[in-house]
Design a protein around this nucleic acid. Sequence first.
DNA 1: GATGAATGAGCGTTCATTCAT
DNA 2: AATGAATGAACGCTCATTCAT
Lengths: 199, 199, 199, 199
Amino acid sequence: MSKLDEKKKLKQEALLSSAFKLFTEKGINNTSIADIASSAKLAKGTFYLYFKDKYDIRDRLITNQGNRLFENANKALLNSEYNTLEDCVIFIADNIIDQLSEHPALLKFISKNLSWAVFSNIRIAGRDNMNCMDIFEELIDKSGRKFREKNMMIFMIVELVNSTCHSAIIYKSPVTLEELKPDLYKTIRHIIEQFEITD
Amino acid sequence: MSKLDEKKKLKQEALLSSAFKLFTEKGINNTSIADIASSAKLAKGTFYLYFKDKYDIRDRLITNQGNRLFENANKALLNSEYNTLEDCVIFIADNIIDQLSEHPALLKFISKNLSWAVFSNIRIAGRDNMNCMDIFEELIDKSGRKFREKNMMIFMIVELVNSTCHSAIIYKSPVTLEELKPDLYKTIRHIIEQFEITD
Amino acid sequence: MSKLDEKKKLKQEALLSSAFKLFTEKGINNTSIADIASSAKLAKGTFYLYFKDKYDIRDRLITNQGNRLFENANKALLNSEYNTLEDCVIFIADNIIDQLSEHPALLKFISKNLSWAVFSNIRIAGRDNMNCMDIFEELIDKSGRKFREKNMMIFMIVELVNSTCHSAIIYKSPVTLEELKPDLYKTIRHIIEQFEITD
Amino acid sequence: MSKLDEKKKLKQEALLSSAFKLFTEKGINNTSIADIASSAKLAKGTFYLYFKDKYDIRDRLITNQGNRLFENANKALLNSEYNTLEDCVIFIADNIIDQLSEHPALLKFISKNLSWAVFSNIRIAGRDNMNCMDIFEELIDKSGRKFREKNMMIFMIVELVNSTCHSAIIYKSPVTLEELKPDLYKTIRHIIEQFEITD
DNA sequence: GATGAATGAGCGTTCATTCAT
DNA sequence: AATGAATGAACGCTCATTCAT
């Protein structure tokens, strides 16, 4: 990589991290392109050399941050000793929930913008071109058990976790995260059971 | 009601329905107050006689539309012959899902803005000052069964239904509504079971 | 005066005193006609039955308040035992200064809007159609002394008092009122002396 | 200075002179930022690149114009042969009065907005960081005479000149400028005398 | 006479986008 | 590639004024 390319990379990263800071602090609507550029110590016009508009940089951020969450969770899982499919799925959920509960601004930012399409395409670095869905499929395969409608199963788990934790973390309402977790994980076990094929 | 009051009522309704149309068509961010007023064939200043700002009219719309959904579902339930708690809860969910699937714009609008705080305060017309939570509590009481953490139980059901149906209706992804429903309802039964206290 | 006329009088007075309160509290520019009307507990349209616009009511207020200041000063002078022209003029100045220093808002309001034309036409109630200038002329006549350019003499005194006290009362800068007074009155004596004709 | 900086300077000056023209012609209240910008043949947004708001540009104008008045007077004094303190002070007053009487609009603008705080901070170009007060102090020092309360003395002179000339120039009432001057200057001499300390 | 709902011109301000340097 | 001055459309909001009741 040439020196120029390095410089460009640095500028892009400065814009991304400035945008992330401002989006999570003040919300996307209250952040202008001038804000982002000046916070990155770049000129306004420079922004347009790297991104089309505010929504372009937002989408890049969601993907990046989503990646990070799952990478962390995946790495932690590999260091753990969990075995059953249920334990592994819950481990990942729990890990991501804990990451988010420590950065409520990130949670707000992500969950407002996380659609299934985005989610299922998040790619995991270090696992050759694998995405979230692939990780889950792998877990299922390793368990040796059989499931119908794997997509729907994962979809239901992800949506349930995402929406209930959002409320619990941001508003602590109607229950706190700590109150929620036991029953949330119990429900995850029910959902997995519900989709298992037992001959 | 005087003639003047009638006229005022009409104008407010014109503003509400214009706002709803524009919010669902173009999104709140791309709708200006001038748009709403002119679409209601009123002067810009008139808007401010009835609402504080865009977010005031949005909140009024959410409450109004939320009310309507639950009122319809509740009325239909009273005309049905369902008995068990599970059947009743699923009947309401199903009814609301069907209403929303026929108005995806309403679904988009509502579910982007529906927090638990808003939800649990939606009031049902015709049932003396009762809100959604009261309706559910009533169903539970009538069943004669005992549950721990009723709030959390309802919360999990509502969030699961809301988030999965949003995706299924708007994006038909990863499954269509018709594919989702059977498993969604099965999961609802699991959740209810999970919270029941059996001595 | 008919009952109706009394009611009208009351409404006009309510408007005047509301306007005065608001003008002195928030300034004329930040006071709207709606403010005045609602503070007087009258409808907006009613304002226009009594005054042409904001500046109409302002001018009425200046005259009214100016009258009051001079009436009070004049009444107090009649109860005093001062004899020489200098003592009388200074007594009036001092009296008005003290009135104003107790109502800085009134001072601000008056002195921003007090031109010589307005000043010299302020009428004193209870003295048959006499104005400020007449009062001063009377004092001069009673003294039995002779002056050239009486108008200019009074003009210089009034302007000097008005402008220096404005600064002293509102900003206490560059000197306070108490520091200013002795020298101010000494200068008034000099001015009177300067215009006296001594054969 | 680069070409760009020159262009910016020109634009700022265009805004200043447009604002001055409009403020003096129509008053500040009746001048909008759009007026100023379009009169300077610039876009409305450009105004905000150079000034915060209407009052920012007003304050800049007062300082600029005030500077000019005193600079001119000071330069003329240096070319004159006046010696005594009284003659010098009256020379400056007379010079400024003449400047103002030729630009009544400037007089209106300045004297409505000239507070003691503003006045005493006006800086004189070409005299290393000196302001009006410094000039007067210098004159006093050079005279070798002793005065008590120099601040108050100058304050009284400035306020008297400002307020009487305002009326004389703008309204020619109750006397014209030419009628006023002799007595005004006589009063200035009295004031100076009044503050002198004679052992 | 009194009301206050309705108007719509007008305001200050922001900001995405362009483009000459 | 990078800049940042310039633009002007668009916005939310205010308010004097009118007029049907």
